[in-house]
């Protein structure tokens, strides 16, 4: 039986960690701000030499949503790593805490942190670059929700690799998602990519989300029903894979004694 109080206790453990450490606070605000400033000023420059109306907004919008994917998946894996680094997994998993409760706790934590990040970055983009992410209408909520889902799925897969192969793969918490950065169409259309990469990109819900976002910002296009369906179907597949990977990875960690000697 899943117990909300244990999920709360698990989340509280990480909320206290954020409260106590500077680097976790930096993850939420500092790096997204730096990224926004760089890409924001770049987009201002692009607007001046301007190629296409809305190009600058599409870049800032793309960056904000990418920041969201990156933070969600990273926060899921870093929370697990945090307990491995401090040799606290032993004590945590000797309690009645279930794998499912950990998973729910990680997802809820990632949501809370991402909401803080997106609120801050959106307000900053509005204040500094006069860009309002929510001006594209209700479809933004569909995009954001699906960004969350993909971030959870990807984060679960990363954690699963850490559970299976240990801390030697900890760098994956920050780097694995970066493989998708150039091919997800965050700042440019998929037509820019070589055919092979574009085909791979079409297997990612992110590419449909960023194409849709760009279309909405630059050309006021509304959401295409076919693309919407693809986003939902692909995300359902990735989320199922992510949950399966997390559960099997958890079992593998328990079988190898990784919670006792995380290395």
């Amino acid at each position: 039986m899943i117990a909300p109080r244990r999920i709360k206790a698990y989340m509280l453990r990480h909320v206290f960690e954020i409260w106590a450490t500077v680097d976790r606070k930096f993850d939420i605000i500092f790096w997204p701000t730096i990224d926004l400033l760089i890409f924001g000023f770049l987009s201002v420059h692009i607007q001046k030499i301007s190629v296409q109306a809305g190009a600058a907004g599409a870049i800032i919008g793309g960056l904000i949503l990418w920041t969201l994917v990156f933070s969600i998946q990273r926060d899921i894996s870093v929370s697990v790593l945090e307990d491995a680094w401090t040799r606290n997994l032993y004590n945590l998993f000797s309690t009645p805490l279930h794998a499912a409760e950990v998973l729910i706790g990680l997802v809820l934590l990632a949501i809370c942190k991402a909401i803080i990040t997106i609120t801050f970055v959106t307000l900053l983009a509005w204040g500094l670059f006069d860009f309002n992410l929510f001006s594209i209408g209700p479809s933004i909520f569909f995009y954001i929700f699906n960004i969350f889902v993909f971030g959870w799925a990807f984060g679960c897969m990363t954690v699963s690799l850490i559970f299976r192969f240990g801390l030697r793969l900890q760098i994956f918490a920050w780097s694995m998602i970066a493989v998708l950065y150039p091919i997800s169409g965050v700042f440019y259309p998929l037509s820019t990519l070589p055919a092979v990469l574009a085909d791979i990109a079409r297997l990612l819900p992110l590419s449909y989300i960023f194409e849709g976002l760009r279309g909405a910002i630059a050309n006021q296009q509304s959401l295409n029903a076919g693309d919407m369906s693809m986003i939902v179907v692909l995300n359902a597949i990735y989320l199922s894979l992510g949950i399966w990977a997390f559960i099997t990875g958890f079992r593998s960690a328990k079988n190898r004694g990784w919670f006792i000697h995380p290395s």
């Binding site: 453990r13 960690e17 401090t86 004590n91």
Partner: peptide, 17 residues
Amino acid sequence: YADLAGNLTVYRNLKIY
């Protein structure tokens, strides 16, 4: 052979458990 969370106070660690 195991620790509690090092970045948390004793009280907060015990509260979590």
